[in-house]
């Protein structure tokens, strides 16, 4: 019996963790209602199907070392602790690290209070804060994913030099073509007046 004790302990720990792992659906529900977008567990967890199961990033797949990391993450009750949970992604770790596990659990009845606490960070560097990405239901770790209007606003500013150069190239190209057209029109007009006999009305239309 004693030989099997560690395995039994581990199994019971996994079961206990699994039962509490899906205990915060309030956040997902609120984000979906608020944003109108479908949101999966992949927003905060390693596995898109959530922490329960035996696939990579789920509780059933954790080895002893990963379980230690999980325990440390679960004990990060106060803000500021370094969190490196094997079932959470970088954003999940960031939430616990920023506000602490205690407050995160306390806020589950008022999920709308969570985003303002994360407005100071932007993990994917897309110019939209993590709190805003939560409100919008977009992925806080993917710089290619965000509210289209916000991304447009942010990126217009961010790429203003590139866009300015592109605009300048386009304007210069158009200027050149306009003058080329004018030159061709003059050529045609000259040919017509010289009695070339062409029936084209190109000069007229140009």
């Amino acid at each position: 019996m004693a030989r099997h004790a560690p395995a039994l302990l581990a199994a019971s720990a996994v079961t206990a963790l699994a039962s509490s792992a899906g205990a915060y659906p309030q956040y997902q529900k609120w984000i979906q209602q608020n944003s109108g977008r479908t949101v999966s567990c992949a927003m905060c967890h390693e596995n898109p199907d959530g922490p329960e199961g035996v696939k990579a990033g789920q509780l059933g797949s954790l080895d002893a070392e990963a379980r230690k990391r999980l325990d440390r993450a679960r004990n990060a009750f106060e803000p500021g602790a370094r969190v490196d949970s094997p079932i959470l992604n970088e954003f999940g770790d960031h939430i616990i690290s920023t506000i602490g596990k205690k407050r995160f659990v306390a806020l589950k009845e008022h999920p709308e209070l969570l985003p303002p606490l994360l407005d100071g960070s932007d993990l994917d560097g897309d110019g939209i804060s993590d709190g805003q990405e939560l409100r919008d239901g977009t992925h806080p770790l993917d710089p290619q994913h965000g509210d289209p209007r916000r991304l447009l606003k942010v990126n217009l500013l961010r790429y203003r030099f590139h866009l300015g150069m592109l605009a300048a190239a386009t304007i210069l190209g158009l200027y050149g073509i306009r003058h080329l057209l004018h030159w061709f029109a003059l050529q045609v007009r000259g040919a017509l007046s010289a009695g070339d006999g062409r029936s084209s009305t190109s000069a007229k239309t140009s």
């Binding site: 992949a42 239901g137 977009t138 289209p148």
Partner: peptide
């Protein structure tokens, strides 16, 4: 050609500033 130039400017601006996938939910 002039039209193509203007359209390319608009297309490049949109492609640079608005990722196509941002209109969809990320789990997709």
């Amino acid at each position: 050609l002039s039209l193509w130039g203007v359209v390319f400017f608009i297309l490049a601006t949109i492609a640079l500033c608005v990722p196509f996938e941002s209109f969809f939910s990320f789990p997709l």
